[in-house]
Design a protein around this nucleic acid. Structure first.
Length: 421
DNA sequence: TCTGGGGTCCTAGGACCC
DNA sequence: TCTGGGGTCCTAGGACCC
């Protein structure tokens, strides 16, 4: 059964345009947290030469000149649109693996005439009609082939967003069109090495001597080569595998040099991370906190500290105690910190709790659990921070900047767009 | 003034076991 | 000159993904 990769073009930009038709077909740029740099742009902005990853302050004038619309990232909106997209895809295929916020691998049988075009066109129509999101569909025998076909679907304009490598008589011709750096799994280092060794496109990569590849890139190189030949080496995961760690971090809107503020930030992140654990019914075995200064100033400083918990837990109070006790280990008064974060590690299912022979801790009482549950429910129902820990601080001057935030048009009643006849 | 956030997998090397 | 062999587990760091 072939594998297809379905993804949304310029997903974040398309979501913003979906809830605000006034910016459809306009150059549009989405900024990262703190309105730092460009993380997505509409096709129009791309065509006008706005590139990914550019710091906003460096290209502000260029954006003004081309009359670009600016949006701060609105992850609540994107996550909700993603769920809607996934459920449409799921209803139209045999198996689905939601691979990232804007793409899914799917399994779909070939009809008797071998032509999957009708299916693909129909899926594009439905998603555009219901969500106003344009999607691209690439079809192949392995995940890497599906990725490659998806790339071709976007770059060959005549195929209107759909490319099926499986029915092409001359696959080699198309593999040759894909630059090696655009092959899934090839990063900057790998691409550089390839160029030095005369490998410039996907065809050359597929056909190069595998012992040479193995020597440099180990099993990953061999796997990739086999996948390009159409052999499945990367498993299709129709059931989500439980996460092994959970990280919450961000850059601060201004540098900080006080441990008091660092404690507020670490507390805020720890609380969010514990919520995540409870959402996924998992416990953390150990917790790491980290801080660093800016990459762009002299005297770079970066530090982390880890603590193993006596018993795996997802109780905010237990995790807060551990995380806050680590702050003195990473804080240094001579450095201006610009980023801080918390990583919950070695996550285990909360259904089974491995006790510790020497532990003095008593088992969690039901009263404790219901307190945390009540807080979670209040915040879920009335919005984040309806009830919060004083450890997070009240002023929170370090909070991220989002000057161009759009509405929560699909998840908050008061933000629902109004259409006037 | 201002440069994202959240993950996974693989490998090498150290510590340890019998 | 000479220093066992075969294995597991853990961690840190690199590379990559979106």
């Amino acid at each position: 059964m072939p594998i297809a990769l379905v993804d949304s073009n310029n997903f974040y930009a398309a979501c913003e345009q979906s809830i605000d038709p006034s910016i459809a077909n306009r150059p549009l740029v989405i900024l990262s947290n703190n309105d730092g740099c460009v993380i997505a742009r509409s096709a129009e902005a791309r065509a006008m030469g706005v590139s990914m990853g550019q710091p906003y302050f460096k290209i502000r004038h260029q954006l003004e000149r081309i009359g670009a619309e600016i949006r701060s990232s609105n992850y609540t909106l994107y996550a909700d649109m993603s769920q809607r997209l996934m459920s449409i895809i799921e209803a139209n295929c045999e198996e689905i693996e939601a691979y990232s916020i804007d793409e899914a691998f799917v399994k779909i049988s070939r009809p008797s005439n071998d032509i999957l075009m009708t299916w693909a066109r129909r899926l594009r129509e439905i998603t555009y009609q219901r969500l106003s999101l344009p999607i691209a569909i690439g079809i192949g025998e392995s995940k890497s082939q599906a990725k490659l076909a998806n790339h071709l679907a976007k770059t060959i304009t005549s195929c209107s967003g759909i490319f099926d490598l499986g029915i092409e008589n001359d696959q080699d011709y198309f593999l040759k069109q894909v630059e090696v750096r655009n092959v899934w799994g090839v990063g900057p280092k790998f691409a550089h090495w390839c160029h030095i060794h005369g490998i410039h496109n996907a065809l050359q990569l597929r056909d190069m001597p595998s012992n040479k590849l193995k020597k440099k890139f180990g099993v990953k190189g061999i796997r990739l080569q086999d996948e390009l030949k159409g052999h499945r080496c990367i498993n299709f995961l129709s059931q989500a595998i439980p996460k092994k760690e959970a990280c919450v971090s961000n850059s601060l809107s201004r540098p900080i040099d006080s441990i008091g503020e660092l404690r507020e930030i670490i507390a805020t992140h720890t609380i969010r991370a514990s919520e995540k654990l409870r959402e996924h019914n998992q416990n953390a075995t150990s917790i790491t906190i980290f801080v660093r200064t800016s990459f762009y100033t002299p005297n770079f400083y970066s530090q982390s500290a880890t603590q193993r918990l006596e018993l795996p837990s997802n109780d905010t109070r237990v995790l807060l105690r551990a995380a806050l006790s680590l702050t003195t280990k990473v804080f240094h008064p001579n450095y201006l910190l610009i980023k801080a974060g918390v990583i919950m590690q070695k996550l285990l299912s909360a259904d089974y709790l491995q006790l510790n022979l020497l532990s003095t801790n008593e088992l969690k009482g039901s009263k404790d659990e219901s307190l945390i549950k009540a807080i979670d429910n209040l915040n879920k129902r009335y919005g984040r921070d309806t009830v919060y820990w004083a450890a997070c601080g009240i002023n929170r001057k370090w909070k991220i900047r989002r000057s161009y935030l759009s509405a929560l048009a699909t998840t908050r009643l008061s933000d629902i767009p109004i259409v006037r006849a």
